[in-house]
Amino acid sequence: MDNIVEVRDLCVTFKTSEGSVYAVSNVNLDLAEGKTLALLGESGSGKSVTMKSLMRLHPPHKTQITGSIQVAGRDVLALGNRELSDMRGKDIAMVFQEPMLAFDPVFKVGDQIAEVVMRHEGCSYEAGRDRALEMMECVHIPSPRKRLDAYPHEMSGGMRQRAMIALALACRPTVLLADEPTTALDATVQIQVLLLLRELQREFGMSMIFVTHDVGVAIEVADEIAVMYGGRIVEQGPVDEVMTDPWHPYTQGLLGATVYPNMDPATRLVSIPGAPPQLYRQITECAFAPRCPHATDECHDPLPPPTQTDQRMARCIRLPEVAGALPRASV
């Protein structure tokens, strides 16, 4: 099997007191073994929700998930509670955005890593600690033996995120989910963590799904990219193609609002006017149309069908004319 993750027609709906929230609609994703997929989009576009669905981390009685999710040959939506928690952390692991909050403050970091290893491999505490030490070395934490006995608040932000990665990788997962792992870090640490993730991915041969709102980060780590807007994927394809020749007006807008190396200091960054849509109703037209510079009347009609080529996909009815219409010189 070449695809380690296959998501088909995924819809996630949350039931709240104010009605249903259609957080994710009709998402299709494929991830080949050893590759990295970046989910790119702004806050509320459904990227984190999509990723958490892969592990079914949403509160079950408030969430409705339809479609199909296959991870490492298993149908995630059909798993029982027991099999589900056996799979989490073992086959598919997650790195959280805020490493301070993702560690339990009352336990030592080493013990928390050991706990996961003991849970999945049924080994002794000592073996778990040995693995924790080995993982701390893998993620280049200085004097790892000492850090095993540190509490989360005794570490710096970058080191905590490294420890978080150590924890996620402790059981050699085949798929790693990273939920904006660099957002809470400052710029110099960000790049170190990105490079580390890439290095470890190569070393362990895992596949990775990387959620980010930072175009630069996506370009840095990803092989494939999926741009999300309003709970749908609006554009999808290999990262170098999408980033050099974006088809969808939203992707074009994102790129137009990004700084890049060697850019002319006089260039104005173009912002996308308006705000992302509320998802309290099922959006059946192009969600981006109200903000789109190319929108015409027919854009407010039914949902644009995906325009599909071999490797790429984009949802825009005006695609032929719009594609390549970057707001400024190409990246």
Binding site: L57, N81, S85, M87, M94, F96, A102, D104, R119, A168
Partner: peptide, 21 residues
């Protein structure tokens, strides 16, 4: 808090989460 989600994401069941974390 996030670490409860993180524990669940590393394979802990509800009982472990309540009992330990």
């Amino acid at each position: 808090l996030d670490f409860v989600d993180a524990a669940r994401a590393s394979g802990a069941n509800s009982l472990t989460i309540v009992r330990v974390h």
